[in-house]
Design a protein around this nucleic acid. Structure first.
Length: 430
RNA sequence: UGCUCGGUAGCUCAAUGGUAGAGCAGGCGGCUGUUAACCGUCUGGUUGCAGGUUCAAGUCCUGCCCGAGCAGCCA
């Protein structure tokens, strides 16, 4: 007899199998009990009757509560009355634990209650489907980058200073010295790509901003590729290919999960190259036409991003921002030094920015000047300046916000559902 | 941080200023094809906290706490 994952039961028709899992729901017709069992891979209905089970085992099955842990042995039968088209006719039952009254009933619940029970909410079909899609997105991204000759090189989480002077960092005590949790691995990755050519970092990043929105977490995961000898245009096409590869992998491998989430996949199917490109200046014009009160030089907020994304069915690149509202390390546009060679990728359907990328300054003197203009401590950036001293080359990179990408692909209304244990403003339990 | 809305049973929600209610969950009983099963029955309350108005406050007023939505902040 085989120990089988529920998702693989289809290939064990009329065979005897062993399944271990938890009781998702139960209904009873007196002498006939229906157990809906989950094992993390899928759900299956098991049927218990007095005909196939001893009196003692039948009574045990009758006592099972939601989330009781168990193991069943029985024969897989085709039956279109069961969810998924087959069910298990139980011949024997082993119970690990009869569950106490489980807090999350199969009815509706509010956000506060669910997030307080986050450690249990992840068992729901809703959250576990999202986590599976998240896993597929990560796997697809790694497969894509690895196939393109990238090496994963991870960067430190404990850092001596800000990558930039702007964001609010989490400060910690490092043996009596101040240190900070990383808000990006980019600067270190610029060093790494001068060693290995094409690299990416995938890890957690931390922002201590008092942001309380559906698209912000205090702790989130970022995929940050960095490439030597790559300029703005090539940087954008790699982003485009990466996003298309991720979306098509999810469509191919996660159709059950997308169905569980009731995701309308028609938008996802349109995610094919090329993505529309829009300069910052053009975007400002379009926003003005739509009635936004915005002047050249202002940064875009959430409503502006949503308005721009609504003009297109695909994700859209916004390029050539004014240098004044972007980071110090971005390469100025040779035709107009007020602009920088950067691109934000705005997801479709109003999900906002999922990628921010740019070509980096490779000239020593220019970078030094920018560091001073931004009032950053030059000493702290000595190693970063060194990269422009010893065999400097044009290079580019970008950062993909994993949770925002998951939120977009899954069609979620809030980013808190995209990670097993979200870290929110003023909310760190459990 | 600002604006707006909210807080009643374990959960989701009702309740003209006039006796605190229902469904689900949980207990007990019934049912051989249920799909958030159903039927009967039982259990379940400091109405977020503190004060005030009133013969009477879940309901009106003030302050505070907590949550949510939006905005700001935000490579």
């Amino acid at each position: 007899m085989s120990k089988v994952m529920i998702k693989d039961l289809g290939s064990f028709m009329e065979k005897k199998v062993k399944v271990s899992g938890w009781l998702y729901n139960r209904t009873s017709k007196g002498k006939l009990i229906f157990l809906l069992i989950r094992d993390g891979s899928a759900l299956v209905q098991a049927i218990v009757s007095r005909q196939t089970l001893s009196e003692e085992q039948f009574n045990l099955a009758d006592k099972l509560t939601q989330e009781s842990s168990l193991e069943i042995m029985g024969v897989v039968r085709e039956d279109n009355r069961a969810v998924g088209g087959y069910e298990i006719e139980v011949e024997s039952l082993k119970v690990f634990q009869i569950c106490d009254s489980y807090p999350i009933s199969p009815k509706e619940h509010g956000v506060e209650f669910l997030t307080f029970h986050q450690h249990l909410w992840i068992r729901s079909q809703h959250i576990s489907s999202i986590l599976k899609i998240r896993a597929e997105i990560i796997s697809a991204a790694r497969n894509f980058l690895n196939s393109q000759g990238f090496y994963q090189v991870d960067t430190p989480i404990l850092t001596p200073s800000a990558c930039e002077g702007t964001s609010t960092l989490f400060k910690i005590d490092y043996f009596g010295e101040p240190a900070y949790l990383a808000q990006s691995g980019q600067l270190y990755n610029e060093a790494n790509c001068m060693a290995l050519g094409k690299v990416y970092t995938f890890g957690p990043t931390f922002r201590a901003e008092k942001s309380r929105t559906k698209r912000h977490l205090m702790e989130f995961w970022m995929l940050e590729p960095e490439m030597a000898f790559v300029e703005q245009e090539e940087n954008m096409s790699i982003q485009e290919e990466l996003i298309c590869f991720i979306v098509s992998s999810v469509l191919k491998k996660c159709s059950n999960e997308l169905t569980t989430l009731k995701r309308d996949v028609s938008f996802l199917k349109k995610v094919q190259p090329p993505f529309p490109r829009l300069t910052y200046s053009r975007a400002v014009e379009l926003l003005r036409e739509k009635g936004f009160d915005i002047k050249w030089g202002d940064d875009f907020g959430a409503p502006q991003e949503t308005a721009i994304s609504s003009l297109h069915e695909k994700p859209v690149f916004i390029t050539h921002y004014p240098a004044t509202i972007k980071a110090f390390y971005m390469q100025p546009d040779i035709d107009n030094p007020e602009l920088v060679l950067c691109a934000d990728l705005i997801a479709s359907e109003g999900y906002g920015e999922i990628i921010g990328g740019s070509q980096r300054i490779h000239d020593y003197n220019l970078l030094k000047k920018k560091i001073n203009e931004h009032n950053l401590p030059e000493e702290a950036y000595q190693w970063y300046l060194d990269l422009r001293k010893y065999g400097s080359v044009p290079h580019s990179g970008f950062g993909l916000g994993l949770e925002r990408t998951v939120s977009w692909i899954c069609g979620l209304s809030h980013i808190r559902e995209t990670i097993a244990f979200p870290r929110m403003l003023d909310k760190i339990y459990p």
